[in-house]
Design a protein around this nucleic acid. Structure first.
Lengths: 207, 207
DNA sequence: CGAATAAGGTACGAGATGTACCTTATAAAG
DNA sequence: CTTTATAAGGTACATCTCGTACCTTATTCG
């Protein structure tokens, strides 16, 4: 009877959703819009339509578009993999980088750029985003490098937050300035072999 | 007689500007808007008013807002300093970073973020921006590090484009993910002392 | 069952982009 | 000097989006 209906819209017809259920539907819709069209393509009307509701329901929960987008991005970004453990630092690092590069939220770069630009100056959202972007990670990286240190592949001085996150910082810089959603694998290898591993291994002998 | 008039508007009253003169006035206006309000604040109407003309004159020259903004950003970004030469690598590097951090286009981060987000997918603009962002610089950095190598402060292996630009890449990553326009000086020092100098100096002994 | 609460529907103001169309000044050619 | 092509100015407008307002309707809970 409703042939052109998206799942959420159909669901809406089976009674009126309230509270958490509706909130979750909105967030899921926003998340999908974000993944498909990036921040620029996320409009309140479209999210509302996709969730089978209307803008009011959204504005009752989030004060503006940026807040909704950040909330949706959290759900995109927080499903994360456990740190790899191949027994070799280089492989672990490449695996991690490749995970970030072609992760679950594919157009990472565009979304992130869009969000950062759209948020502008709201410090609360900025803080949330920083937490997600700047690290779902120091932890993971410390783990991986920590194991390498235990194996003797790197000196203990390597275990510095600024140092262990260099690889992902360079990767992020790469796709941010190039505007590509995905960086060629050769670039990852270059970052690892020319910068990251020499940095980790070389820190002790030098001083 | 026109007390509330901006200089450009006054100029407009002294005869009708054409061609290059008008184009330059538009670009200057856009550049000022960019520096004052970032990409989000750059609107076609305001640029037109500031330049003492109207939107038509702009759309006859640039196809859309993003193109105008990139053109304006070029003028902001291309007046660059000659590479410093203090005789010591660490000082040179810090000087360069500080120049980027508080350069002539103060809200660097916001402008860059906004542009990258606004450009979206137009590959031509993206390429122009990449050229500016990813390097007004390999050149400068190669120069500075090259002199350090000549002085024996670093091994020749350090002269790799990916390696010498690590510092500025980390800085950019920093203000992009933190959303700050200006990074505290302590962060610059940390990047230099914990990452950049160890990397440059340590490369040779390792292999 | 009745009232408070939350959802849906619709309309609208403000502000921006990009387009259309016409008028007017300037510069170059005859 | 006059004519004419070109480029600038002025204005209006269609479209889109955000965010707000106001009212109607369904659901839940006392």
């Amino acid at each position: 009877m409703y042939p052109l209906m998206v799942s959420e819209e159909a669901a809406a017809k089976r009674g009126r959703r309230r509270g958490a259920e509706l909130e979750s539907a909105i967030l899921r819709a926003a998340q999908e819009e974000l993944a498909e069209s990036g921040y620029a393509g996320l409009t309140m009307d479209r999210v509302a339509r996709r969730a089978g509701t209307n803008k009011n329901a959204i504005y009752r929960r989030w004060p503006n578009r940026a807040a909704l987008a950040v909330a949706a991005y959290r759900r995109l970004a927080t499903d994360r993999l456990p740190p790899p453990d191949t027994g070799e630092l280089r492989e672990d690092v490449l695996t991690l980088l490749r995970g970030v590069n072609c992760g679950p939220s594919s157009p990472q770069a565009e979304i992130l750029r869009g969000l950062l630009a759209g948020i502008g100056d709201e410090p609360e959202l900025l803080a949330q985003l920083h937490e997600l972007a700047a690290e779902g990670g120091a932890g993971v990286w410390l783990t991986v490098v920590g194991r390498a240190v235990a194996r003797g592949e790197a000196p203990p001085e390597a275990l510095h937050p600024r140092v262990v996150t260099v690889a992902v910082a360079l990767l992020r810089n790469e796709y941010i300035t190039r505007g590509l959603s995905t960086v060629p694998d050769g670039v990852l290898v270059e970052i690892v072999d020319e910068v990251y591993l020499p940095l980790l291994r070389g820190r002790a002998p030098v001083r």
